[in-house]
């Protein structure tokens, strides 16, 4: 097992390149997912505000007629 990790003496180079690649790819993916979640939440909020506003306006216009 330790033979596998030492990679013929080059373990530090090999594992650090695999580590850096994994971290970079995961961070990019997570950052994208987080941004997506935040934007969705903000969009939902805006749409609820808009919805209630429209309902209020409809009620008002119904009362007026």
């Amino acid at each position: 097992m330790s033979e596998f990790f030492s990679m013929g003496g080059y373990g530090s180079y090999i594992w650090s390149s695999y580590g850096v690649t994994a971290i970079a790819m995961i961070v990019l993916l997570l950052a994208t997912l987080r941004g997506l979640r935040n934007s969705r939440r903000e969009l939902d909020q805006l749409e609820t505000v808009l919805h209630t506003k429209r309902q209020r306006r409809n009620r008002k216009s119904r009362k007026a007629t």
Binding site: S39, E42, L46
Partner: peptide, 23 residues
């Protein structure tokens, strides 16, 4: 991986444009 992240990022961009347009 590129195409997965691309699709997600395009969605993110579209959402952000929508938010901006609403504002």
């Amino acid at each position: 991986y590129y195409f997965v992240v691309l699709i997600l990022r395009v969605r993110l961009e579209l959402n952000e444009r929508r938010i901006r347009a609403l504002h």
